[in-house]
């Protein structure tokens, strides 16, 4: 029986493809590579690599401890390289940290937000976790830098630098 090898990407090992135009323009396809973007960004910077109206896919290099974040809606995080721990706290007063009508992730400027511990999750490559509405979360990675993507909405911590990251 044939043995197949599944190729995943990593910060230290990825093979970027690309757009080969005939008559179209590469920039119309908004092509980038999440590992390349993470490698060239600051730790925990949430760089938008996908945008569909208000919705985003954001990529971060996981290195050390992230700020505490919260949002007025669910978000999801998918570990694409390395391992990362997710800490979750049920905020006593979510509206004090984020307008319930707002969108996207917001940083909570506190060492430990006020609320009840909900739990923690250890993610490795391919693992997805929910970041539920009403919770504060932070990510911790004390090992080699890794990469996560977020399913979210454009907000105050979303960083757009399309010309820098995309083929054109």
């Amino acid at each position: 029986m044939t043995q197949y090898t599944t190729e995943f990407g990593a910060l230290a090992n990825y093979r970027k493809g690309g757009v080969m135009p005939i008559t179209d323009e590469p920039r119309r396809f908004v092509f980038s590579n999440i590992f390349e973007v993470a490698a060239k960004s600051r730790p925990w910077e949430r760089v938008v690599v996908g945008k569909n109206f208000e919705y985003t896919i954001e990529v971060s290099r996981t290195e050390g401890t992230s700020p505490w974040y919260t949002a007025a809606h669910d978000e999801f995080v998918l570990c694409m390289d390395g391992a990362v721990e997710v800490h979750l706290i049920k905020l006593d007063d979510p509206d004090a940290h984020v307008d319930p009508e707002s969108e996207g992730a917001h940083v909570i400027d506190a060492t430990m937000p006020e609320g009840r511990k909900m739990g923690r999750i250890r993610l490795r490559r391919g693992h997805m976790a929910m970041l539920p509405v009403g919770a504060a979360y932070r990510l911790v990675n004390d090992a080699a830098p890794g990469v996560v993507i977020y399913q979210s909405i454009l907000g105050p911590v979303s960083v757009e630098k399309w010309a820098e990251i995309c083929q054109h």
Partner: peptide
Amino acid sequence: RDTATIVCRAGDICCMP
């Protein structure tokens, strides 16, 4: 009519117009 070919490998992201 053919207008482009895109090769996507692990980690590549793109959007179809």
